[in-house]
């Protein structure tokens, strides 16, 4: 899916204590691109993800994803949009602790009419051997892989990843990124990944840098293979 942002503004608070988390952001992402958003804490990265995915509302501007005018959509329509087109991956995995690995993925599959085969997807992310385990029996990297499988099972056209490797060590982080890269290439899924870790930018087709609610740089990049990534914090 192609994404287009025009003069997007989002503020929190009112009056003197008002903080502009996004201040006139313009951005274009083509379908199937792997985009990495870099920036320090408070730069507006998470807010950008929130408004693009329809989790939060923008104050001004326009967000158009393919034919969907996100800025005009009601809650109900946004829910349907997320359900059919968007996958999320979080830093803390956010798995349901009461369900097994497979059941967590089945929850994602339940959302659409034509999901991927759950067993196949678990195999793709290397979790087929752990299908009946509960999240607390898994390592952080394994949980994140389940989270990825849950996000992808519904064949999303876009994948929003908020610090997906933030809680992982280098080796595990690289594995997770490798899976994301593979899925991006295999299924032409648009990936928007937010991170503090500048080295991850090497995987991106486009690198977006943010500061104080503004995009300060957009650079095209020739991505390297995740296994070749030089990890730095």
């Amino acid at each position: 899916m192609a994404i287009q942002l025009k003069s997007v503004t989002k503020a929190y608070g009112t009056g003197e204590v008002q903080v502009k988390a996004l201040n006139g952001v313009d951005l274009e992402i083509k379908a199937g691109q792997f985009v990495v958003v870099l920036g320090p804490s408070g730069s507006g990265k998470s807010t950008l993800l929130n408004v693009m995915s329809g989790l939060d509302r923008l104050d001004e501007g326009k967000i158009v994803i393919d034919d969907y005018k996100i800025h005009e959509m009601e809650d109900k329509a946004l829910t349907k949009f997320r359900r059919n087109h968007v996958g999320f991956i979080f830093q803390q995995y956010n798995l349901l602790q009461t369900l097994t690995v497979k059941e967590n993925v089945l929850i994602g599959a339940r959302l659409v009419d034509d999901p991927f085969d759950v067993d196949q997807l678990l195999e793709d992310v290397g979790m087929d051997a752990h299908a009946v385990k509960y999240p607390f029996q898994l390592s952080g990297g394994e949980q994140q892989r389940v989270s990825i499988a849950r996000a992808l099972v519904k064949r999303p056209k876009m994948l929003f990843c908020d610090e997906p490797t933030g809680a992982l060590d280098e080796s595990t982080g690289k594995n997770v990124l490798a899976i994301l890269q593979k899925l991006n290439r295999s299924y032409n899924t648009t990936v928007l990944l937010i991170t503090h870790n500048a080295s991850i930018a090497a995987l991106a087709d486009v690198v977006v840098k943010m500061n104080s609610g503004k995009i300060v740089d957009v650079a095209k990049n020739t991505p390297i293979d995740a296994k070749e990534l030089r990890w730095s914090e």
Binding site: L96, Q97, T98, L99, E103, L106, I107, A109, R110, Y134, F136, Q137
Partner: peptide
């Protein structure tokens, strides 16, 4: 942490629910 112990009590119940929709399993769990 939500819990550290395997939810043993849930296993028999979940077997009971295994033929139901995943949302029912989740509800019961």
């Amino acid at each position: 942490k939500m819990f550290k112990v395997k939810p043993v009590k849930a296993i028999w119940f979940k077997k009971l629910l295994s033929k139901f929709d995943i949302l029912s399993v989740l509800q019961g769990s």
